[in-house]
Each structure stands twice: as C-alpha cells, then as structure tokens.
Design a protein around this nucleic acid. Structure first.
Length: 584
RNA sequence: GGUCCCGUAGCUCAACUGGAUAGAGCACUCGCCUUCUAAGCGAGAUGUUGCAGGUUCAAGUCCUGCCGGGACCGCCA
C-alpha cells in the first residue's frame, strides 16, 4: 500500500470516529475521499478532498468541515502541519522522521520498491506485436512491441500475474505467398537465375537463406512438382524461419514473450468449429446481407448473403462477416477462436496492443470477447499511433521503396535498444509521436534517456568515490539501511525523498491507466530533483555528498544517493532499460 | 457519409481519471566551471486548453453540436 493510501485510510478512520461521535451524519460516501500529492509543493506534503466531497451530504460548509477534520488529523504522530486552503482542501505536512522511514524502505526493498498488490495476483494476458510471419520486423512494429512489453512489466510490478503472448498469423493467404516466395528462392538456390521477383511475392533478400536451406535439405525434390505438392511443406518451413527472425528481432529489443500461439494450430485443432458452435448456441450467428458503407462506393460492391456475427448486440456498429465467399473463415472468426482459447486458459482480463490501422477492428473484437465469455471476460485494446522517424528535423521516409531504415534491426543498430525502448515510451501510446534519430543519441538535457541515465551514473560515481575514500570494498559493507539519517534535513534532500516516496503510487496509477509513459515522466522528475541537489553542492559545500571529516553525514548522504539509484533502476526496469553505472 | 483516436505556450509534450494560480523540456535572455562527471544547475517571459453550449461547489478532463488533423470502413491480416 502506498503512503497516500495509508493516509486515506487514516482519514476514513477518523471520519468514522466523527460519525460515531455524532459530529457527522451517517450514510456519507467515504469512497470519494482521496489523498494525493498537491500539485504545488508549497501546499504541503499531502492533500485531501475529504471536506469537499462530504460537505454537501453532511450539510456543512466545506471549509468549516475541513477545520474539524484537520483538528483530528493533527493528532496523528506523523502529521506535523495542517492547513486549510481554497475551497476546502486539507493540506498537511509529515515529519522528517516519516520521510526518513520512506528512504529506509527504499534501501530495504531495493529494486522491488514500488511493487504493489493492486492486481491481487489476477491473471492478465498481454498480446503484442503479432506481426505477420512474412519477414523481419519493421520499425512500425517497434512502438507496439515496446508498449506491450513495458505494460506487461508494469502490470507485473503492480501485482498482476501477467502472461505475454504473440499470435502467429500463419493461416491466411499471406503465408501462401511466403511459401511461393520461398519456392522461388529455392529454385534460385538450385541454379536458376532469378532476374526480378514477380509482383505479389516477397522480394526481400531475407528469403534467400530460406530457399537455400530447403535446397540443401531436400535437393531438387520439389523442383518439377506442382504447387499443390510443395506448398504446405514450404509454408511450414518458411513460417518457422520467419518466426526465428522475428524472435531474434524481439530479443534485440529485450523482448521474450511467454507464449506463441499459432493461428493454424488453433484452426487445425477445430477451435473455429468450436467457437462457431459457441456463438450459434447463443443465437448470435445468422445469414444476412450487409448494407454498403455509407458515403463510400466500393467499385465491386454487390449485395451478397453472408454468415454474420451479431456484433451489434454488443455495441458494434454493424454485424460482422465470419465467412469469406470462398467458404473459408475470415481472420476475424479465427481471432474470436483465439480469444476464446485465451479465455479458456483462464484469462478474464486480456489486453491486445494493436497498431492504429486496426482501430476499426476494436469494437468487433471487444464485442466478440463479451459474447463468447457471456460477459465474463474483459478485453482492453491499446492502439499505438504512428511514429514519425526524423533526422535533423527532417522526416524520414520509411517505405520499402526508398530502401532506408525499414527494419527494426536497423533502428536498434543505429541508436541502441535502450534508447528505442525509452523514447518509444515517452509519449502516450495513442498519440502520434516524433522520433528524432539525432536527438536521441545526443548527450543533453533534451534527451530524456541520457538525462535519466546520467542521474543514475552520477549516483554510482559518488558511491565509487566514497568507497575509495572510506576504504571500503563493497557498498553492502556500509550497512546503509541501519544507520541514522538524522543528518538528512535540507529541503532539497527532503524533496528528493518525497519524490522517491511517490514511486509506489505512480506504479499503481500508471498500471490502472495502463499507461507506461507516465513512468518516463516520473523518472525525468526524479532525475531533475537529483541533478538539482547535486548542483546545490557547488554553491554550498555543506550540501556535497562526501565529507572526509564527517563520516556520519557522509554515510547518511550515501544512503540517500543509493536510494535514488535504486528507485531510478526500479523505474528503468519497468521499461526494460538497463541502468548504466558510467557514461563515457 | 460512418466509426475510432487526437487538438493544451512559438516547437515537442505532461497534467496522477473532476480539484487549488493548466505544468516540463526545447528555443530566447541573464547568471554559475581551481569542485563528487558543466554531458549539468539556477533565474526570467509565454496560454480564450480548436469553437459554442451543457452537467456541479469545482471542467483541459464528463455530455451535446460544430471546426481541424490522422487511422479505418464486406469476402487483407
């Protein structure tokens, strides 16, 4: 439980006591009471809206009620100051001893500081990337990959039992195209000259090793046979190779998902028949004719009876087709089967991370999930907007035609994994963002990755110097968590501790909102407070961390530094970014 | 035409799910290096939160309608 929750409970308790003492009427809605950090630090350490949300039902003026609550609040040991402000905010300040206790918590818990039981171990499935297995990952996949992965880590930290998952779309027509592309390269490997890759096949060089491997394994066995003979074999082989590429690319980003589910395996196992029966039993499948989309006139539109899912019963705008005109199932149908599979594996909460181009798919998928689970499962879909790659302020074209920077691997090679991860998480995922390749590798205030990493490196630098001066080999030997922190009392130091103490709450609010980008802003703020304190040591030598003539002060300061480094590392861990100990 | 996302300082973006005087960074001006990493710090200016209504003690946040940008719109995935 974070410290704001603790004080919220304290206030609820004392309001209940006031009700018992008949200072307040019964039947008040105490759930609306909250305790937050005030927007302006000058307002104190904590603030509560209790008086304002209770005033109306209590039949009292908010400020007068605030004064009464404040009187009770002031009796708590940890509360030093209480003020009433504005329309009835109760602002209060906590004792230095309390903040020292927070710092001790950081040192005791280490990277685990901020772990929460908010999720109470509930199972959540986070599915992300799920790119077609037809080639290496493209830069366009980066944001979804990083967002999904950070979201999963964030939810884990917040106490959910998270499974990360990749859905392999290996049952559609595009994997047949992949197989044909492989066959072309297979012929090439056997000596045939390929002048140009025909339209409709995948032209990338990455298909050449696939063809070569098939030639080496099977010789000319498939060379003069019809497509029907080799298609399935080539498809299976190529998909496996492509997934190897994908996994390698993901690993380059520090991502290793727990489960890879094959669409084809699901289909082969009868999952689609199964889901169709489930929907039919609920009376949600019928054959009907859809209206053409309004305002648009598709050239080849003709009214046609289709097998439809009653998506409109669950909030979608139109009913959605389950069967193609050739009798095979649509992607949507298979995807419903997949979500039913996830549900049956025990996931009542699922999160899908999609690209913005799948926005039109959200309603139907949520509708379907509600339908198959009888409302028991909840699906959240996070849409990731486009990232505009820039260089020197100029937009970069990412199309395959222009030939530059198409793969995720290229991007990682250019700026590094940690930079890609951090920068992708500095913006809310459903807003478009710019990614300037120049800026993100600069070592300046303008580059948040550097700025945060530098704060951590500075902490490590101080600790290294201190160990030398104190003639100690290992930081653990100093037993920092059991020393006195009495020397930590400068306002800038306490501000730093307050910021650290806010981390557990931030984890919870970010997890609830499913918005990992908030961690980036938090880390930036923490780094700012640290850099600021560092520089105060220039104006005021007493604020420097190491004092050779004062061991007790030095140790207390080292404890502060160490806890800052730990909280930064704890935050970076949510992003899957390694904290660096040195910048060179 | 419909659905979804977005619209906040000159620029890039926050705003803890309805709270106080809407905040950071960049850019601009001015200070700070015999110092634990100046790769940094401090000070200063900037707003009709796209527009118009509504809901209430309180709206950037919720509701309605417009305006502007983006994504998508039966048998691709």
């Amino acid at each position: 439980m974070n410290l704001f929750e603790i004080f919220r409970e304290n206030i609820v308790t004392l309001v209940n006591e006031m009700i018992e003492a008949q200072e307040l009427p019964e039947g008040l809605q105490l759930g609306r009471i909250n305790v937050e950090p005030p927007r302006d630090a000058a307002h104190g350490d904590l603030t509560t809206n209790a008086a304002m949300v209770l005033a109306k039902a209590a039949g009292q003026n908010p400020r007068q009620l605030a004064a009464k609550i404040a009187d009770h609040l002031a009796l708590l040991d940890t509360v030093e100051t209480v003020d009433i402000a504005g329309p009835g905010f109760i602002n209060f300040g906590l004792s230095i001893a309390f903040w020292h206790g927070q710092m001790r918590d950081v040192l005791e818990q280490g990277i685990a500081f901020g772990d929460s039981d908010l999720g109470r171990g509930r199972k959540v499935n986070v599915e992300y990337v799920s790119a077609n297995p037809t080639g290496p990952l493209h830069v366009a996949h980066a944001r979804g990959a990083v967002t999904g992965d950070a979201l999963a880590r964030l939810l884990k930290k917040a106490g959910y039992e998270v499974t990360t998952e990749y859905y392999i779309n290996d049952a559609g027509s595009q994997v047949d195209t992949l197989a044909r592309s492989a066959h072309l390269r297979y012929r090439e490997a056997l000596g045939e000259t390929i002048h140009a890759v025909p339209d409709g096949l995948y032209p990338g060089d990455y298909m050449m090793p696939v063809g070569k491997a098939l030639a080496e394994r099977d010789g000319d066995k498939w060379l003069h046979r019809g497509e029907a003979d080799w298609l399935a074999e080539f498809r299976t082989f190529s998909v496996a190779r492509m997934m190897d590429l994908v996994r390698e690319d993901l690993k380059g980003l520090g991502i290793e998902q727990d489960v890879f589910t094959s669409e084809k395996s699901l289909v082969d196992a009868g999952a689609v028949d199964d889901v169709l029966k489930t929907l039919e039993d609920k009376g949600l499948v019928y054959v009907g004719v859809l209206e053409p989309p309004k305002g648009m006139k598709p050239d080849d539109w003709e009214p046609r009876p289709q097998t439809l899912f009653k998506a409109t019963e669950f909030g979608d705008d139109v009913d959605r087709p389950l069967k193609k005109s050739d009798g095979s199932w649509t992607y949507f149908t298979n995807d419903i089967a997949y979500h039913l599979d996830k549900y049956r594996r025990g996931f009542n909460e699922m999160i899908d991370v999609f690209g913005a181009d799948h926005g039109g798919y959200v309603k139907r998928m949520k509708a379907a999930t509600t339908a198959i689970s009888g409302g028991d499962a909840e699906l959240e879909i996070k849409l990731c907007q486009m990232v505009h790659l820039m260089k020197d302020g100029e937009p970069m074209r990412m199309s395959k035609r222009s030939g530059n920077f198409v793969t995720l691997r290229d991007l990682i090679d250019e700026v590094g994994k940690d930079v890609v991860r951090f920068i992708m998480l500095t913006r809310k995922s459903d807003t478009q963002m710019e990614f300037d390749l120049q800026k993100v590798t600069e070592q300046s205030r303008d580059n948040p990755v550097f700025y945060v990493q530098y704060a951590h490196a500075r902490c490590c630098s101080v600790l290294r110097n201190a160990l030398e001066i104190l003639s100690v080999d290992h930081i653990g030997d100093l037993d920092l968590k059991n020393i006195s922190f009495a020397a930590i009392k400068d306002p800038a130091e306490l501000e730093l501790i307050r910021t650290m103490a806010n981390w557990p709450r931030l984890v919870e609010t970010a997890a609830q909102a499913q918005e990992p980008h908030r961690v980036a802003y938090y880390l930036n703020e923490l780094a700012t407070h640290f850099h600021s304190l560092w520089n105060k040591g220039k104006d005021d030598a007493r604020l420097r961390f190491i004092h050779e003539d004062d061991r007790e002060l030095t140790l207390a300061r080292l404890a502060l530094i160490q806890s800052v480094a730990l909280v930064i590392a704890s935050g970076l861990a949510v992003f899957g970014v390694n904290p660096v100990e040195e910048l060179r």
